[in-house]
Design a protein around this nucleic acid. Structure first.
Length: 470
RNA sequence: GCCCCCAUCGUCUAGCGGCCUAGGACACCGGCCUUUCACGCCGGCAGCACGGGUUCGAAUCCCGUUGGGGGUGCCA
C-alpha cells in the first residue's frame, strides 16, 4: 500500500461515456483541493465494464480534461490492468466466510422479490447453500446482519447506515470479472487515496465500500466529500442521454475552457467575498471542500454564456483572434475579421458567433433577414430617399474611412428630413436602411466602421442593389 | 416499498445565534449612454417551504410535516 503524509485525491471516470459537465465538476473539485493542499491529483480510468468501455471514450475524457486545464500527477491507472489482483482479493474473502458463491440469475432475484411482495434486491438466497464455483456463479459479499456503518463526509457531516439494510452485493461476476465496488475500493487503497471526492450518487454505495475495505484489511480513507448533483430544468440528475452536457460539445460551441472552469467552480460553492469571476489561482486559494453546499445545483447555460462573454471581452485582441481562428471557416474570414476584431469581441458570447457577424464582409450572397428588411425598408421612414441620399453622398467620397463616412451619412439624413427638434441628424433612424442594405440585418457591428471595412465599391453596389429592390 | 440525502430571490450562491430592513451574480423589467446591437452606468422585481420547540434573541440549533432528489444491476 502506498502511504503518504500529503493528501491524495483522484478523479476516477468510467469510459462508458464522454466526459460531461458533472464529471468535469467532480474532477475540478478534486483538482482544486489537491492543488490547494499541495497534495497529489491522480487519475484512474475505471474500465472494468469491458462491454461498454472503449478507447475512444478514454481519449475523449483525457482530451476534455486537458482542454479544461485539469492536469494530474503520475501515470494514469487503468483498472483493467489490476483485475487479477482484485479477483484474488475477493477470493481471499471466501476463506474467511465473508463471501460466498451464488448461482441466482437476475431474473430469479427479481421474481422472488416480486413474489414475496417485499423490497426489490437480493434476498441472501445462497448465503448458506455452500455452493462452490461453477459456471454461472457470482461471488457475493456477506454483509453484517447488525451494527452500523458510518463515515464522516466533509459536505454532509456524519452519515450512517444500518448494516441490515445493506444487501449482499456482487464482488465477482459469473464471468470472473470484478465489479465496480471491489475494484474501486481496492484501488483507492492501493493508490493511497486520502480524500474520496465524488458525486452524491455514490453515497448509498459508501457503506458497502467501507465494509469491503474493512474485510480486506485495507483501512479507510481520511475523509469523504460527496458533491451535490448537477441537475437539469426538471431538477433531475444530469443525464448524458437526455441533456446536452458533453464538455467536448461545449468546447465545439465556442466556450473558453477558463470560462467553463470558472462557471463549474460556482456550482455548489461560492467565494465569500462574492467575486465570481476571477483567475483559477485565486479559486485554488479560496476553495474549501467543507464549504461545498449539500444541495443540488442547476446547470444554467445562460450564466455560463455570460461568464464566457466576460472572458472573451477580457482577452487582448491578438489573443481573441488566436482563439477565434479554429472557429473560422478559412483564412479569408480571419482577414476580414482582423481589422474590426475589437468591435466584434465585445459583441459575442461564443466563438461560434463571430463568423456570422463578419460574414457580410465576404463576397457571395448576402444573408437576407426578412424581418430586418421589413423593419428598415418597408416600415422605416424615408428608406428609399435615405438610400438615394447616401449613395449620392458616398459616391465621390475621397477618404474611405469611418469619420468622413459618418459625416456624409449625417448630411444625407438631414437632407431627407431625418432630424430632431434641434435640426440634428437622427443617425439611429438614418442608419437603419443603410445597415440592412449593406449587411442584410438590422443588428451588427458599428455601421461606419463596417462600411470602411467593406470598401467603397462594394458598399455602393449593395446600396444600389437594395435601392433597386424597393 | 425500503435506505440515504437535501430545502435562502426564477437560477447559482453569501449567511454558520444578534452586524439581516437577508448581501452578490445570472435572468427579467425600467432608465441613462449611444450610429443598430453589445458594453458600461443607475434603478426595480424577487427568497429564508410549513409547523412546533430551544433561546433574551433563529435564515442560522433540535424535532416533525410537506416537497424534491439520489440509491436500490452479475452498470459505474
Amino acid at each position: 500500500m502506498v502511504t503518504s503524509e500529503t493528501s491524495r485525491l483522484r478523479f476516477a471516470p468510467s469510459p462508458t461515456g464522454y466526459l460531461h459537465v458533472g464529471n468535469a465538476r467532480a474532477a475540478l473539485f478534486n483538482w482544486l483541493e489537491a492543488r490547494r493542499a499541495g497534495g497529489q491529483m491522480l487519475l484512474r480510468v475505471e474500465d472494468t465494464d469491458r462491454e461498454r468501455s472503449s478507447s475512444e471514450l478514454v481519449e475523449n475524457i483525457l482530451a476534455s480534461l486537458r482542454w479544461l486545464g485539469l492536469d494530474w500527477d503520475g501515470d494514469i491507472v487503468f483498472q483493467a490492468d489490476n483485475l487479477d489482483v482484485h479477483r484474488e482479493a475477493a477470493l481471499s474473502l471466501l476463506g474467511q466466510g465473508r463471501a460466498y458463491w451464488c448461482d441466482c440469475t437476475g431474473e430469479q432475484v427479481q421474481a422472488r422479490a416480486k413474489e414475496r411482495g417485499g423490497p426489490p434486491g437480493y434476498d441472501n438466497h445462497c448465503r448458506e447453500r455452500g455452493l462452490t464455483q461453477s459456471d454461472g456463479t457470482a461471488l457475493r459479499f456477506r454483509t453484517p446482519d447488525d451494527g452500523v456503518t458510518s463515515f464522516f463526509d466533509l459536505v454532509r457531516g456524519e452519515v450512517s447506515f444500518e448494516n441490515k439494510t445493506i444487501e449482499d452485493f456482487v464482488l465477482l461476476r459469473s464471468t470472473g470479472l470484478p465489479m465496480f465496488l471491489l475494484s474501486n475500493a481496492f484501488d483507492d487503497a492501493a493508490m493511497g487515496i486520502t480524500h474520496v471526492v465524488r458525486g452524491e450518487d455514490h453515497v448509498p454505495g459508501t457503506p458497502k465500500y467501507l465494509l469491503l475495505r474493512d474485510a480486506l484489511g485495507l483501512g479507510r480513507p481520511e475523509v469523504f466529500a460527496h458533491l451535490p448533483m448537477l441537475v437539469n430544468e426538471g431538477r433531475q440528475k444530469l443525464s448524458k442521454r437526455k441533456d446536452a452536457v458533453s464538455v467536448a460539445d461545449f468546447a465545439a460551441q465556442g466556450y473558453l475552457p477558463e470560462a467553463m472552469v470558472n462557471y463549474l467552480v460556482l456550482l455548489g460553492w461560492g467565494p465569500k467575498d462574492g467575486i465570481e469571476i476571477r483567475p483559477l489561482a485565486e479559486f485554488v486559494e479560496l476553495f474549501r471542500l467543507e464549504d461545498v453546499t449539500p444541495s443540488p445545483a442547476f446547470f444554467d447555460v445562460k450564466k455560463l454564456q455570460h461568464i464566457n462573454a466576460e472572458y472573451l471581452r477580457a482577452l487582448p485582441v491578438a489573443e481573441f483572434l488566436e482563439r477565434a481562428r479554429p472557429f473560422l471557416s478559412g483564412p479569408e474570414v480571419e482577414a476580414v475579421l482582423a481589422p474590426i476584431a475589437a468591435l466584434i469581441q465585445e459583441r459575442v458570447r461564443l466563438l461560434t458567433e463571430i463568423e456570422p457577424m463578419v460574414a457580410f464582409l465576404l463576397d457571395g450572397p448576402l444573408v437576407e433577414d426578412d424581418a430586418s428588411w421589413d423593419k428598415a425598408m418597408v416600415k422605416g421612414k424615408n428608406a428609399s430617399e435615405m438610400l438615394d441620399a447616401t449613395i449620392a453622398g458616398l459616391v465621390d467620397l475621397d477618404q474611405w474611412v469611418a469619420e468622413p463616412i459618418r459625416a456624409a451619412i449625417e448630411v444625407a439624413a438631414i437632407s431627407v428630413g431625418l432630424v430632431n427638434a434641434e435640426g440634428q441628424a437622427q443617425l439611429s433612424k438614418a442608419q437603419g436602411p443603410v445597415r440592412v442594405a449593406i449587411t442584410g440585418r438590422s443588428v451588427g457591428p458599428p455601421l461606419f466602421e463596417s462600411l470602411e471595412a467593406l470598401g467603397q465599391t462594394r458598399t455602393l453596389n449593395r446600396l444600389r442593389a437594395a435601392r433597386a429592390r424597393l
